[in-house]
Design a protein around this nucleic acid. Structure first.
Lengths: 147, 147
DNA sequence: GTACTTGCAAATATTTTGCAGTTAC
DNA sequence: GTAACTGCAAAATATTTGCAAGTAC
């Protein structure tokens, strides 16, 4: 939060309740919410907030490097309060998106740069699979339906 | 193309000129086109084809495992005639999307599986950067504007 | 006080759907 | 001949924009 306030001030952007609320929601969710989910979470505290405000705030945050926009193959974007590019792990069953530790994959960028002539600025690693909870549900439902 | 015909037949799907044309376009483009680009490429040969047909055909191809749907953080999807999951390289300047050789990154999946309890089914690696052509343009325009 | 911000409504973009007419087989 | 497919138009979904009213500073 201090980071948000400091960055907004330094760019002469105003510190509004809406912006604080939106940033808080992203910051405090382990999952990576999309605009709609953020909007719905705001609904109880800010019944009159508009989707446009959520979009505008998120775009500002992204420009200021406060959040990262991620896309895991859905037709909507999700937002991550950690602006540093890092790998994500998607459960294709319950659709949650977790962070992974980047240190699992050292020096991917440099191997791409050396084998192509590209100057790499960013990478997006995304793994799709089934989380332990869903795996368990799956196996128990298999037992049920097979009876 | 033989692959397309064989797969369509085996699933009792009809082999229509539209489907052949759409598949051809994806297959023959080094870049990874989105629906709009495919539709525009079709325009000269099939002036009456509809966007809906392009969408429906691509969805069918994806379901049959003939193409891969990719998303590199745009708000539209691109299509790849190589259905095997493999890394992509995006030039953020000219917006082309190239394939990378998967062998550059061995055993990513297994290291994710061993460090989480997830069962990984698919991965998407995407590197963003500037291609050699755009790098060159950039440096020459810098020289020009700085004069 | 004023420049920035919000919230609404309308616009735009992408994708999906329903259905009547057409076509591959 | 018929089930599958196409093309159109309308709907659904996601995002952006213009602008009048409101608010942080």
């Amino acid at each position: 939060m201090k980071n948000l306030v400091k960055t907004l001030k330094s760019k002469k952007c105003k510190i509004t309740p809406q912006r604080l609320a939106i940033y808080n929601i992203i910051k405090n969710s382990h999952d990576h919410l999309n605009v709609d989910a953020i909007y719905k979470k705001l609904a109880s505290d800010y019944p009159t907030i508009s989707l446009a405000t959520v979009y505008k705030s998120l775009e500002l945050f992204a420009q200021l490097g406060l959040v990262q926009v991620i896309n895991v193959g859905e037709n909507s974007f999700r937002y991550d309060a950690n602006p540093k590019s890092h790998p994500h792990l998607v459960c294709t069953s319950c659709l949650t998106v977790l962070d992974l530790d980047e240190t699992l994959f050292p020096s991917l960028t440099s191997s791409v740069e050396s084998s192509t002539k590209y100057k790499i600025t960013r990478q997006q690693l995304c793994f799709f699979g089934i989380c332990p909870d869903c795996l368990e549900l799956e196996s128990s439902s298999t037992l049920t339906t097979s009876s």
